[in-house]
């Protein structure tokens, strides 16, 4: 597997042009107290250029969300370097993190659209919150919220509604709009479509494509290669906390190098006309666990 992994490991810096919005080098993350330390991420290096969309795929527990949460400062890294918009945030304390976050350079869209919006706040209150935190006047914030609500194809009538009165797709679009109001350079989306039906999924993916066209860098985290494939410029594959393959989306899908990637591609029948059959998948699974 080591040989396969080495072969499969393409340059983590592919696509980087020196002005990366996000640059992660040798990231290690551990959970739990010293004696029961459990490794969540090991030696993960990835960079995201301005306007680039990077998809991170992997199974549940592979460390996808941990990667996002570490980049956002919600989880502390054990080792490694994280540079956001040219700032090395490795040694940042809570005050410095707050200052960086208030600039709205990076935003996050959560997986669960119901729990990511405060059930007591109306859509408008949720949308203007990041702006109010930045110190924007309420009226101006409200005007900007309306603009971004239109950008995610939602009606202004929803501004007075509570999250409980919206559908799952509407909630997720509100969450996307909330992430966009500060006009970030980088948006990290953690499984943004996994809780949605196919119609809403298509709508959200279209919004992401529009964002990419507008020059916003995206990190799209998903367990579903199919969702990522249509949006991402590059795809990074996480397996058991390690980045096993990074490359252009087309290359990773058409010519996967790592066994795990091959298994992932083989398990997504819509991606290739000649998808791997059951026997082939079993063979790959045996190779992976060997």
């Amino acid at each position: 597997m080591t040989t396969e992994q080495t072969q499969g490991q393409r340059s983590a810096e592919a696509g980087a042009d020196g002005r990366a919005v996000l640059e992660v080098t040798g990231l290690d993350v551990h959970y739990g107290p010293r004696r029961q330390r459990r490794r969540a991420l090991h030696d993960v290096s990835l960079s995201v250029a301005p306007g680039e969309t990077v998809g991170i795929i992997g199974e549940t527990g592979s460390g996808k969300s941990t990667f996002a949460r570490t980049v956002l400062g919600l989880v502390r890294a054990s080792a490694g370097r994280i540079v956001i918009g040219g700032e090395d945030v490795g040694a940042y304390g809570s005050r410095q993190w707050r200052r960086l976050r208030r600039r709205g350079v990076v935003q996050y869209v959560f997986q669960d659209p119901l729990r990511s919006l405060d059930p007591d706040l109306t859509v408008e209150e949720s949308l203007i919150e990041p702006l109010l935190i930045q110190g924007v006047a309420r009226q101006e914030a409200a005007d900007r919220a309306r603009t971004f609500l239109a950008r995610v194809q939602l009606s202004e009538e929803l501004l007075d509604r509570l999250p409980g009165e919206l559908s799952g797709g509407q909630r997720q679009r509100v969450a996307v709009a909330r992430a966009l109001v500060t006009e970030p350079k980088l948006v990290i989306l953690d499984e943004p479509v996994s809780a949605l039906d196919s119609a809403n999924r298509v709508q959200i993916l279209q919004i992401l494509k529009d964002l990419r066209a507008a020059g916003v860098a995206l990190v799209f985290i998903s367990h579903d290669l199919g969702s990522v494939a249509g949006v991402a410029d590059r795809i990074a594959v996480l397996y058991q906390g390690e980045l096993v393959e990074v490359g252009a989306a087309r290359d990773v899908i058409t010519d996967p190098r790592h066994v795990y990637t091959r298994l992932l591609v083989g398990s997504a029948p819509t991606l290739r006309s000649a998808s791997a059959d059951r026997a082939e998948r079993d063979r790959l699974r045996a190779l992976l666990h060997a």
């Binding site: 919600l74 976050r101 208030r102 709205g104 935003q107 959560f110 405060d118 919150e129 935190i133 930045q134």
Partner: peptide, 21 residues
């Protein structure tokens, strides 16, 4: 809860989170 973390990611202080959420 994710909405408190969303506020944190937006740069909210502890005081803001307690008052608002």
């Amino acid at each position: 809860s994710p909405y408190v973390e969303a506020a944190l990611v937006a740069g909210a202080s502890t005081g803001w989170i307690v008052r608002r959420h």
